[in-house]
Design a protein around this nucleic acid. Sequence first.
DNA 1: ATGGAAACTGAAAACGATTTCAGTTGGCCG
DNA 2: CGGCCAACTGAAATCGTTTTCAGTTTCCAT
Lengths: 330, 330
Amino acid sequence: MSVSIKDVAARANVSPATVSRALAGGQVSAALRAKVEEAVKATGYRPNLSARRLRSQESQTIGLIVADISNPFFTAVARAVEDEAYKAGLRVILCNTDENPDKEALYLQLMEEERVTGVIFAPTRATVGKLAKRQFNFPMVLIDRAEPGSGQDAVVLDNAGAAALLVEHLRDRGYRRIEGLFGNASTTGVERRLGYEEAMRRFGLTPSARFIPPSIKAAEEEVAGWFRRGPAPEAVIASNGLLLMGVVRALRAAGKSMPDDLAVAGFDNESWTDLIGPGLTVIEQPVATMGRTAMQLLLERLEEPDAPLRKMVLGGRCLTRGSTTGRERP
Amino acid sequence: MSVSIKDVAARANVSPATVSRALAGGQVSAALRAKVEEAVKATGYRPNLSARRLRSQESQTIGLIVADISNPFFTAVARAVEDEAYKAGLRVILCNTDENPDKEALYLQLMEEERVTGVIFAPTRATVGKLAKRQFNFPMVLIDRAEPGSGQDAVVLDNAGAAALLVEHLRDRGYRRIEGLFGNASTTGVERRLGYEEAMRRFGLTPSARFIPPSIKAAEEEVAGWFRRGPAPEAVIASNGLLLMGVVRALRAAGKSMPDDLAVAGFDNESWTDLIGPGLTVIEQPVATMGRTAMQLLLERLEEPDAPLRKMVLGGRCLTRGSTTGRERP
DNA sequence: ATGGAAACTGAAAACGATTTCAGTTGGCCG
DNA sequence: CGGCCAACTGAAATCGTTTTCAGTTTCCAT
């Protein structure tokens, strides 16, 4: 069917071995190399990557497993990972788990069958704890989400620190009753919550946090409830872009405005956050750096499989905007 | 190294052929099947997909080539394509071209080497015309962008019709000097421009369109120029989400507001468009349907390689919001 | 009991590349 | 001129599956 290395060899009157060497830049006389190249062009030959992988036992492919590529945070991370990967001559298989542990297990198994070179993975809280128990036939770098005992390299945000930055900022602007909304699927929610609670206590304030599913709708309903039943807090911190959008939607639906009815701060500097009303105060995550770093850690791990475990913790930046302008104290 | 089917066979005291059949659900006695399954579990065997692909000559993989997965339009399409693909037991290789024809050529070649089952492709204007000339070893479905003579199945929006919807809406609300901003990299820009111009003329208005690169920055600079040098039009139509965001940014930077200083309408109902100021009037593209349909067309093409060429044209919906509220006539 | 069909199993041949190993040249030096 | 090394080339093995082909067993109807 498809033209194989044998066809090229036949056409150039050489052996398949010579064709292989000529194309791979091995030791071949200039004359033969030219003949081979001519034959390749004439036949329209394309190497068969499956055959190459089978023989050479390396897939030159990595897996990227995230919750949902539609989430701008993961989109940005994925884009960075892919750029680095293709630069390194690696292909990327992308998988969306929708925070579903079953899908995570399924895709991890798929990765083993693909004999991938490595995997970059943003696991759910349910899965991250089990990773240490299993042995994979590829190295893995966790991204965005990790736990002390997971036994894998990782790139994460300083979640607690970033949450504390927001609390501190809100307190400085005079807010006291600061509510926290945290995603319940990932370790980031947990860590951000701890950072929030710790900071609140440090300032002598009473923390009040809610764990909810990481979706726009969940946040919207939660905040709508505050306005319906009251009392609403003075300020809210949303632990990711989805929750942040939910908060904004609820405010709009209830005809409330920022920061007067509710001051709003959150995570993820998505492209629209500076365009909404007075602009949203957010933690900017170094998304591209995270993706690039994950890829780097993976490549280095491939070079040195026995190097000590590494966890890269990156700092977030607090971008203050109009949604937390400040409050005249009573 | 890795455990192969032979190891399983040895452990179960059967031949590799039997193991293969047992796992593929072939004709095997229940007793042997159980023995094989036990052996699989004991050895931790995972089939090697490269070997399987080589032998069976089918990759069970499709390529998805788009301009930039960070663009929410493509994100949504990609998500739909992937869901459908995994449902059909196919893997997806995602490639970002950044509207660069060289990268497009590179990735198309990669797809041939991967021996992919098929490709879903959103080509640039530069490439789409050349597709008919080349022969690929896989079927291809164009998505979002196509041209009459491209010789491939396609799923596209009724671009001219959608642009006309916007013109009609703006005219109904009393706007007359309506400027159009169109992306210059894809056929959608061209088609939307034609639809815009045709509709303007139909209403006795003078079309005034600009072709610019499909980036936030390009649109922002263009609109900023209007306010700096004047005169600004009464309304603007932006032919995609990026340009739309650029328009909004320029307005904000110049301290202008919608719709009084400039009425704004555009393409792509991105999640933030109803939250900006009075809400943006946009054409909602059936993104998920587009992705799903592309996958369907591809699967059907695989079933019936010689079926006639098909082009699916989907209608856009006009969501009217505050950015085009209307104009009191002088 | 016997014939034949049906069910099951294993040996071996692919799939298309890479790579080892063993030649075969040709050139150069003594 | 003989010998040796370097450079080049090809035959054949290999990667891990699937699948064909042929052989064996089982079972049922006659």
